[in-house]
């Protein structure tokens, strides 16, 4: 462990200029989110109301959980999963079906997580063996969608008379459970990524696969761990989504994959791997939702909102990429 830590330290040791830029890279997003919230609170009517902030947090929670969960995949140099939507739908449907059969939403949640983790391990094994992660996750997404469509025949799946809504509606201080789960999930992911051996291995694998391998790090084991974390997030998010609406069908969540990828990119994760943070991915998800909300409150049409949020995402991603390049020169 000590040798790995030492390699990690040497590997990412920045120059003086680099450390300044790295500081900026790390703290740009939190500062930006804080600034956006501060400016909006003073300039946007109804922004700083409790109901509106709660709406932003609720809307962030499910995308945020998956973005946080996927960050390990991106950091490990395996790009993204392109099968997010169908895997989340599968988790939601399993949650509803098992909840309906057992009468327990917790049993449904457990089943959704177990299945998603199994799917994650399967993808981790394939990607860890050296297959292209984009093609693999796309294929898994396709298989999953096909199976869900065939099994459900496109019908709406519910949990029948079993109450699953409490998972999404139970609240503390009028903030519903999914928001707390999002915060807790982010904290655990942050700890695992930043303060454990597997987290350091994930960073090293993404930064330089050959060096990581020479240092005794197993690309396969590390990739599998990254996909397991992803599976846990998908299972939880799928169950929360299904409990929120008490229903799920094969064609749901069409835009989810792009929302999650955007959040991870805005969070500053390097597409090529080695750089990224679950907390920043969570903030990325929060920023995207907040920007859309502010524009909505200013009465901008949907087209303008999509255009401007997309534009801001592009600018942020480019800026973070340039900063990262400069810091490594």
């Amino acid at each position: 462990m000590s040798s790995t830590a030492s390699i990690a330290t040497n590997f990412i040791a920045p120059s003086q200029r680099g450390s300044v830029i790295r500081f900026v890279t790390s703290y740009t997003l939190p500062l930006l989110v804080a600034a956006v919230f501060a400016v909006a609170a003073t300039s946007t009517p109804d922004f700083a109301t409790f109901a509106n902030i709660r709406a932003i947090l609720i809307n962030t929670s499910i995308v945020g959980i998956i973005a946080v969960a996927m960050t390990a995949i991106t950091i490990s140099g395996n790009f993204f999963s392109l099968g997010i939507a169908s895997s989340t739908v599968l988790a939601g449907i399993v949650f509803l079906a098992v909840s309906g059969l057992t009468g327990s939403a917790l049993a449904g949640l457990g089943a959704a997580v177990v299945l998603s983790v199994a799917l994650g391990i399967l993808q981790g094994l394939i990607v860890g063996a050296g297959l292209n992660p984009v093609i693999t996750t796309l294929a898994v997404g396709s298989v999953t969608y096909g199976l869900v469509a065939i099994t459900t025949k496109g019908a709406v799946v519910t949990a029948g008379s079993v109450d699953v809504a409490w998972l999404a509606t139970w609240n503390l201080l009028e903030i519903p459970l999914p928001v707390y789960i999002f915060v807790l999930f982010t904290a655990v992911a942050w700890f695992l990524t930043e303060h454990t051996l597997i987290g350091r291995n994930t960073h090293l694998l993404g930064a330089n696969r050959a060096t990581a391998r020479n240092s005794g790090i197993s690309p396969q084991a590390t990739t599998i761990w990254a996909f397991i974390a992803f599976g846990v997030g998908l299972g939880v998010a799928g169950a929360l989504n299904a409990s929120q609406l008490h229903q799920m069908q094969a064609n749901d969540l069409a835009g989810l994959t792009m929302d999650v990828i955007a959040a991870v990119l805005v969070g500053g994760a390097a597409v090529s791997g080695g750089e990224g943070s679950p907390t920043r991915s969570a903030l990325g998800a929060l920023l995207i939702v907040a920007l859309g909300n502010i524009m909505l409150l200013h009465g901008l049409d949907n087209g303008w909102r999509v255009f401007l949020v997309g534009g801001i995402v592009v600018v942020l991603v480019v800026a973070l990429h340039v900063l990262r390049k400069v810091s490594t020169r």
Partner: peptide, 9 residues
């Protein structure tokens, strides 16, 4: 696995 994906789809 990929072939199965194509067939299923």
């Amino acid at each position: 696995f990929l072939a199965a994906g194509l067939v299923t789809s």
